[in-house]
Each structure stands twice: as structure tokens, then as C-alpha cells.
Amino acid sequence: MDYQIVTELADLELVCAKAREADVVMLDTEFVRIRTYYPMLGLIQLYDGETLSLIDPVALDELTPFTELLKDTSVLKVLHACGEDLEVFANSFGCMPIPMVDTQVMAAFLGYGLSTGFAALVKEHLDIELDKSESRADWVARPLTQKQLEYAAADVYYLYPLYQKLYQQVSDKGWWQASQQESDLMMQKRGIIPNSDTAYADIKGAWQLNRKQLAVLKPLAAWRLKEALRRDLALNFVVKEQDLWTIARHSLVSPKSMEENGVDPRSIRRHKDKIASIVKLGKQLPEDEYPEKIERLMDYPGYKQAFKILKDEVKKASQQTGLATEFLASKKQLNQFLTWVWRRHRDPAKLPDVMQGWRLEVLGLQLDKVMK
């Protein structure tokens, strides 16, 4: 397994130009995400079937040639379990790898569970044991060890023959186009920009609060998200989610009252004045401007019965197609469908996952039928 480490712009230009001549390239990234909002990019792995390059974004100030490769629509980019990788690309390069297909998705169309790991697939299809001990390494620290470099190179070196095998099987079963559609759907979801106006609805337990309390929680959650984005800090390192809920629940203003209610002392020390000003403004909001009470889908009359009917249809579709039930439609996707039916009155502009792409024929039309 030969590889080259790319730390100079001239080498990067050569590597990316060669990769853009290929029809398909393998891609992966190594990153660190502990305290930051966005993943911190540590290494990019690129393999075109001949040249395997480990691109060092810590050493390189200019990565435009790689960005141009990501945007080159004539080259298919293959990744595995690439949800967070897509966030890395969006944040570091301002774009996604287009077009793209995920081998974990391809495997799901062959009956594997949606979270089947790369090492397990390589073992089964290539009979090779991969060492995954470096997966939690610090990829931003330098120098990288020989073991780290070999681990990173293996991730794209063996992805190539794995992709070829999966492609053949997926194509034979008629799921290739669906694999591309599902990968595109993943890309769309990972590309959604966080919305500070609706951040409060994602706070755990927000549904328990009344409208007056939500009038306080909404600006608190918006401030926390903006602060996290500004400082590139994980949300709970700004203020813990539970603390935000507690402050809104009791309209806490003074540091003493926050402390008495169990709010993290560090958050009080750092943000007490800002939190107090937000709470005061929220309390002054006119009643007709309060957010609407959050209604949980599961509290709707007939929810349990409707959900069971939908689950039964998913099981039938699973038996017919051989696809895992969770892959066909997760609990979240079934709830998304019920929301579309009950709250959005089947708005064609806001189609749920099951009513578009490959799922429409396989499952969606039948779900829509039973709900009518």
C-alpha cells in the first residue's frame, strides 16, 4: 500500500488534476470533534485507483485544487458512513462532494443494517482484517505517527475494491439509482444551515413549557446557537441544554437563583449578565407574541394506532424487498410522514422522505393509502 503525503501546493495541484481525469475517486477525512461546533479537519485521504494521497490541511494554506475536485461533477466521489465528512467539507470548503455515493448506503440496499461499519464490510467482502485502533487519535496534532498514516491510507485503499464489489451487487439488484438518491438525501440534510429562530424547539423538554416560558427559552436558545457558531464551540460548552431549560422554566435572573436551581457555576460566572438580560426581555414580550405551545406528535389522538399501522406496512415492505425496516423508514421518518399528513395537510412542497425518491414506490404510496 504505497501512499504519498501532500504538504505542498504544487503537489496538491498535480494530485487533484490526476484525480479529475478518473471517473471515480475514493475520499475520506480524519477530524477531531470534542469541544468544537464544527469538526476540525486533520487529514484528507484521496485514492483514484492508482495514486493514494494523504493531503495535510494543517500544512497547506491553499486547498483550492481540492475544492475544484469536490465540485467536479464528472467525477463520482465514493465515501463510507460520510455524514460527518459532509459537514467537514461544507465547513472547510463551502461545498459538498458532487456527485457522491456512500458505501454504507449501498450495503443497506443489500440487506445490511444501516450502521454497518467499514471494517466489517472489508472483512466480509475482501477477507481483510483492518486495524481500527487509531480511529480516536488526535488528527490535528503533528507529527502524525506511522501507524496513523497507514490507518488513514487503508480507509481509501480498501474502499476501492469494496466499492467495486458493492456496485456490482447493487446494480444487479436494481438499486444503484436508489443508492445515489439516498446519498443525495443525506447530503441535503447535512447541508441544512442551523436556524436560530427555531433552535428552542430542539431543546429537550421544550414541549413541557407553557407559552410564557417559551418566550424566554426561544431567545436563550437563539443566543446560545449564535454564540456556539461565533466561537466554534459545541452547544453544551456554551450553556448546557438542561440549564437553558431550567432558566426558562423558572425565569431565573439572579446568579443566586440560578445557583439554587442547579445551573452550572461556570455558565453563571461567564454568562450571568447576558442570560439575565435575555430573560428580562423575554418576560416583557406581549402575550400575543409568545411562541405557540409545542405539541408532541405522540399526544395526538390516535397516534399510537396510526404509528402501529405504519410500522406494519414497513414490515411488509421489508419482507418484500429484503431491506432493513430501519432503513426503509426510521421512527423519525414515520413521524415526519405523520406530521406531513396531520399538520401540513399533505403539502406537496414539503414532502417527507417516504414520499419522494426510491421510497415513494417501495413504501410511500402504500403509507399514504392506509392513512386515507
Rank of each mutant, 00 (worst) to 15 (best):
A81S: 08
R136D: 02
N195L: 09
G83I: 12
G42T: 12
L310M: 08
R142V: 10
A108E: 00
A137M: 04
L110C: 04
I34Y: 06
Q213N: 04
D184A: 13
R296L: 14
K331W: 10
Q208C: 02
M100V: 14
Q45Y: 12
F89C: 15
V25Y: 03
F118P: 00
R35Y: 08
P301S: 07
Y3G: 02
D184N: 03
E292V: 15
W139Y: 09
T29S: 13
L46M: 07
A19F: 04
W340P: 13
E289M: 12
D23K: 15
K204Y: 05
D197Q: 12
P291I: 06
A317K: 10
K350R: 08
L328R: 12
T103W: 09
D102Y: 07
L328N: 07
E182N: 08
V122I: 05
L60H: 12
I34P: 00
L323I: 06
D23G: 14
A141I: 01
W176H: 12
L63V: 04
I203W: 10
L121N: 05
A81T: 04
D273T: 15
V239T: 11
K280A: 11
S251W: 06
R136T: 13
M186H: 02
K311H: 05
G205Y: 04
A59K: 02
L310F: 07
E295W: 08
F118C: 00
D155Q: 08
V105N: 02
T339C: 06
A90T: 01
V370G: 03
R231P: 00
P255N: 07
A59E: 04
A120F: 05
N236Q: 09
L285R: 06
L162M: 10
R343V: 10
K165E: 11
